[in-house]
């Protein structure tokens, strides 16, 4: 397995994190790499897993409204949904 640098997880979308998690699992299951690489891979998998799980359980729906200038918070302060 080639030496690899990992992307910063906190900037990943759910889809990206999930895709990488799946490839990490597959690589582990194929049994490639040295002990050290394997341990790194496992830690990476755990981090991705926790990130995905946290996204799903802690994310708050962001709602905006299209305005002439761009987008704005919705409902705006005082506006009843």
């Amino acid at each position: 397995m080639p030496e690899q640098t990992f992307q910063d997880i906190s900037e990943m979308t759910y889809e990206q994190a999930l895709a990488e998690l799946e490839s990490v699992v597959q690589a582990l299951e194929r049994g490639e790499g040295t002990l050290e690489e394997t341990l790194t891979l496992y830690a990476r998998g755990q981090a991705l897993l926790q990130y995905c799980r946290r996204l799903l359980t802690e994310a708050e729906l962001k709602v905006e409204r299209l305005t002439a200038a761009g987008t704005a918070e919705f409902p705006a302060a005082g506006e009843v949904e």
Binding site: L21, V25, L28, E29, T38, R53, L56, T57
Partner: peptide, 23 residues
């Protein structure tokens, strides 16, 4: 549906652990 996604994550977690344990 995040219920499905969480279930999928749980199975990936099992595979991750089994993968490292097998190695």
């Amino acid at each position: 549906d995040r219920t499905d996604l969480l279930a999928n994550l749980a199975s990936l977690e099992v595979r991750l652990r089994r993968g490292i344990e097998a190695r």
